[in-house]
Design a protein around this nucleic acid. Sequence first.
DNA 1: TCGATACTGGCAAAAAACTTCCATTTGTCA
DNA 2: TGACAAATGGAAGTTTTTTGCCAGTATCGA
Lengths: 319, 319
Amino acid sequence: MRRGRSVERNNRADVVADASVGAALGYSRPGSYEELRAVLSSGTARLPKKLRQVAIHLWQHPTAVALGTVTSVAGEAGVQPSTLVRFAQAFGYSGFSDLQDAFKAHLADGGREGRDQWEEASGSEAARLVDGFIRSSTTSLGGVRDRLDLAQFEAMSQTLAAADLIYIIGSKRAFSLVSYVSLAFANLGVRNLALDNVGSTAFELLRCASPSDAVLAVSFTPYNSITPELAASAAQRGVPIVSMTDSAFSPLVPVSKAYIEVIEESFSGFKSLSATLAVAMALVLSVEQRRAEAVSPTQNLPSRGASGLVRAHEKLEGD
Amino acid sequence: MRRGRSVERNNRADVVADASVGAALGYSRPGSYEELRAVLSSGTARLPKKLRQVAIHLWQHPTAVALGTVTSVAGEAGVQPSTLVRFAQAFGYSGFSDLQDAFKAHLADGGREGRDQWEEASGSEAARLVDGFIRSSTTSLGGVRDRLDLAQFEAMSQTLAAADLIYIIGSKRAFSLVSYVSLAFANLGVRNLALDNVGSTAFELLRCASPSDAVLAVSFTPYNSITPELAASAAQRGVPIVSMTDSAFSPLVPVSKAYIEVIEESFSGFKSLSATLAVAMALVLSVEQRRAEAVSPTQNLPSRGASGLVRAHEKLEGD
DNA sequence: TCGATACTGGCAAAAAACTTCCATTTGTCA
DNA sequence: TGACAAATGGAAGTTTTTTGCCAGTATCGA
């Protein structure tokens, strides 16, 4: 923030005229937030990678931009402060503060966008559906906080952290989770193999698992997939199994070293997956942290999950 | 502004404990905006003239306080900056910035209360992780209600309902969603084909799509998968595209007949998927309802989404 | 493969903001 | 009315934030 108030902005006509950067992109300083948004959505295509990243972040988190500092915003967007300044200048602003003023002004009046559209359309079937799913997800998420067995969670994390190779199994609905978890693990450098059973090779692949590996199994009522069978056969050969399921009656439970139970709400016959996803992601991170600590026990901050923050800005993004 | 973000506020217990000034007035640092407001309204009477003036100004112009600087706020309130700082300290804050954070936090979530009441994760690292993911998911779900463009949603639903065969594409993180949506469609009897690109056959398969079909594409920043290419090639041959993405900069947008934008929060570098899932499921159901109505327009209850409830008790369950 | 251009990251100087301190004024009680 | 205490204004000092600059790296075209 360079000026007291955002109202009396100095005349920048001269700056725009000779600002090589601004001229290069051909943008003249958008006065209002709406103008900026319009410019952003139109001309972003041919922006360099990082600047593009900035544009997207600005688009997605206007409030954070208005309230934060260059440093904080840059951090959130995964770029350097200087990049933010360059970005602002490329669009004809004198600097970040100048651009920020636009966001502040926007936040000062109206601020929130389509709040009212929802009210008036709340009668529509579409709104009812979306609302229903949001609600059931939210409820599930709320419930899991109270019910989650942290001791089991730790045990699972420990087992997986000690594993040489992590096999991940789950079918149907659980498969969405499996693919997500597998991707997350991979992005953190944790070796894993999601058994998708393409070509019906799951049994054969799992037969290669040894007691130094581990299996993460996911299955929900009515447990009628091959997942329990796979888990059982692996367990028989001494491979440690940990599982996520939705009741203590799951066939996974007897064969598991540790398991957690996550109960999901359902709306209109469709169970949410949010709570399970949240717990699963926490598990993934927990495993990764354990491994990082095992490598350099002293180096990591104990409480802040250093490894979780240090590696990269966004560890799981992109399509 | 002294700290990057206003959310994780450093523990000020020590400051409050020995803050002689704060103790003088007997106020202990109000954590939230609402608390502060309560204190303000109660204790204003016996405040010195200028401080009283400050209290009133804070009460009347919370937005200006959140967005401005000490100097600007002081100017507007007709007092010196130092007076503002003294005021803040009198109420137990460490300084103006600290007090301002309360206003910022209030402005950030549109006046919603809470978030602090979640009582910072009870000790263990595991709890902190789970809590973090739950929180980011919940926030995402809350945000989508405000931002979702229902008109686009309807358009998407309509396009998909009219399609002969629905192709579903998405990679990496989006693939979890794709597999889930595909399964849900299938369980409802809606013909669909999820292009998982096993064997790199996605392009070939999609080449068979005709204008009477439709493509549901899902892609997130930084849009670096083959999804946009697939969508573009299909669009070129006249196949209608609808998409779910996370910003208007997505390469999917220009090729789509309709699209919805869902912005997810992230925790520790991992974006939630909850909001997108919720919207996707709503879309699935919406499509199915349209089809059911098209088959027997009169038979179905119009508002209750009969088809959504009649078919089976649990449509998407089991592993 | 090489060269040129453009983009990015990090640092250090500059600017701005926040806070503290102290002299002065105002208010209150004896 | 005088003395004391409290409150205020202003300026100096300190911290944070912002910006300009330069070197390293990636990208594009030849």
